[in-house]
């Protein structure tokens, strides 16, 4: 018990995440409305994608603006597997993790020498090129996209991810999200995580201590794009209609913004950011969408702008900075004498 208390004190975020998970599991039991459930489904989907994005965008600092398209490729793979091969989306997830991860990594390999915004520009280019190809590709329904049949009572199955209730989809998505979170959390504290973060801070330093930047950029891209495409497969089975619209640049931004709002270089930031922004935007969309279409996006954009201007490291990043400052202030006071001597010395 004592141990648990101490752990909680040192890792308040872990406690928050557990509480959120319990709430997330229980919520559909009390609020079993289709409307609420659809918001929850979207939230876990965006949170999962945002988490996947943060491996590349947050940890190693390569801002991708093509993750919408990469998730959409996963969605296409899932739909094709169900429609043409009658194969389980679970298998599609495994396949798309490897296929999308490897393809995108291969495509991006020559681009890793590019710095900052230049790299982002290439990810936009890849996203747009994929959208163009999928818009003209008859096999996947070209511009019209593809539809999965409505689920009838006898077709319900976990193996095929076909449910009539949104709650079931939500729980599947929640499990994926938890798995994603644990993966990202593990990477964050692992040897791999140290390499990624060192490269983000300074590539020259990374090289000087024996880290080969290109190798880790490839690894991060593979994991990040693979994971986002897995989430895409889930999305396809839930929404049951996909089209090249999913590959629009604005969809990529939908995954980036929660991470920015929550805190780009924190593990929990993307999840918390999604929890704030997705339900809000979905609610506004249904409340104002018919009267003032687009007004939800106005609010969305305003929140983003305010956060970027006043809390540039995100809400969680800011909170961590404050904690750090407090702790350092205490230690500084302790070392006060010694510190002064050295300054005067």
């Amino acid at each position: 018990m004592e141990k648990l208390k101490r752990y909680a004190k040192n890792n308040p975020m872990a406690v928050v995440m557990v509480v959120l998970l319990v709430l997330g599991v229980l919520l559909p039991l009390f609020l079993n409305k289709a409307y609420v459930l659809s918001i929850l489904c979207m939230t876990v989907y965006v949170a999962g994608c945002s988490l996947a994005w943060s491996i590349l965008g947050g940890m190693i600092g390569q801002i991708s603006l093509g993750h919408g398209a990469f998730a959409a490729i996963g969605a296409y793979i899932g739909t094709v597997f169900i429609t043409y091969f009658n194969t389980s989306p679970w298998i599609a997830m495994a396949v798309s993790f490897v296929v999308v991860g490897a393809t995108i990594t291969l495509l991006m390999t020559p681009c890793f020498g590019l710095k900052g915004a230049y790299f982002s520009l290439t990810t936009i280019a890849f996203g747009e090129a994929f959208r163009n190809i999928f818009t003209n590709w008859e096999y996947v329904g070209a511009g019209q996209g593809m539809m999965l049949p409505l689920v009838r009572a006898k077709d319900e199955s976990l193996w095929m991810l076909a449910f009539r209730s949104k709650a079931s989809y939500y729980y599947v998505g929640l499990v994926l999200l938890v798995v994603f979170y644990l993966i990202v959390k593990w990477i964050d504290g692992s040897k791999l995580g140290y390499a990624l973060k060192t490269i983000r801070e300074d590539e020259g330093t990374a090289e000087a201590i024996g880290i080969k930047p290109i190798k880790y950029k490839l690894i991060a891209t593979f994991i990040s794009t693979g994971m986002v495409s897995v989430m895409g497969v889930f999305y396809a089975t839930y929404i049951r209609y996909i089209s090249p619209e999913l590959m629009l640049q604005s969809k990529s931004l939908e995954f980036v913004l929660p991470a920015v709002i929550g805190g780009i270089s924190t593990v929990e930031g993307p999840v918390l950011g999604s929890l704030i922004i997705v339900p809000l935007s979905q609610y506004l969309n249904s409340a104002l969408g018919s009267k003032l279409p687009g007004s939800n996006l106005v609010v969305y954009a305003l929140i983003l702008i305010v956060v970027v201007l006043f809390r540039p490291s995100g809400l969680l990043g800011w909170w961590q900075e404050q904690r750090q400052k407090k702790r350092i202030a205490a230690e500084k006071a302790e070392l006060g004498e010694e510190g002064k001597e050295q300054v005067n010395g």
């Binding site: 040897k191 140290y194 973060k197 060192t198 801070e201 201590i209 880290i211």
Partner: peptide, 24 residues
Amino acid sequence: TFQIMKPLRHMSVLDNVISGALYG
């Protein structure tokens, strides 16, 4: 070391050194 100091700015002093130890 670098003439123009290149600390890993968002990582603690300990993490800076751990990074060196891990890949050394």
